[in-house]
């Protein structure tokens, strides 16, 4: 399975960035709702839409997909 995004659906809310457990362990401040301070994370909101930076770090737990309100991020 692969992590996929659809930037046309994305509202840029950043819920996936904050919910992702891998992101939070790489950049702990995102767990508190803050934006990531590093591009080492799996995904981040850039220019108002979600962008994947490090797909290889994804363990496919499905948390981002469960939280995304607009089906803009998913595993396929």
């Amino acid at each position: 399975m692969e992590l996929k995004v659809n930037q046309d659906n994305c509202l840029g809310c950043g819920v996936c960035v904050v919910a992702c457990p891998v992101n939070a362990s790489i950049s702990p401040e995102v767990a508190g709702g803050h934006g990531s301070k590093t591009t080492e994370v799996i995904m981040m909101v850039e220019n108002g839409v979600i962008k994947i930076f490090s797909p290889e770090k994804c363990t496919k737990c499905g948390t981002c997909q469960l939280f995304c309100p607009t089906d803009a991020i998913w595993l396929e």
Binding site: M1, T59, K60, C61, G62, T63, W74, L75, E76
Partner: peptide, 14 residues
């Protein structure tokens, strides 16, 4: 083993 997390949590057809 498949990506169990995603398969069980998101109901993926895998």
């Amino acid at each position: 083993l498949g990506d169990i997390g995603a398969i069980i949590r998101t109901g993926a057809d895998e």
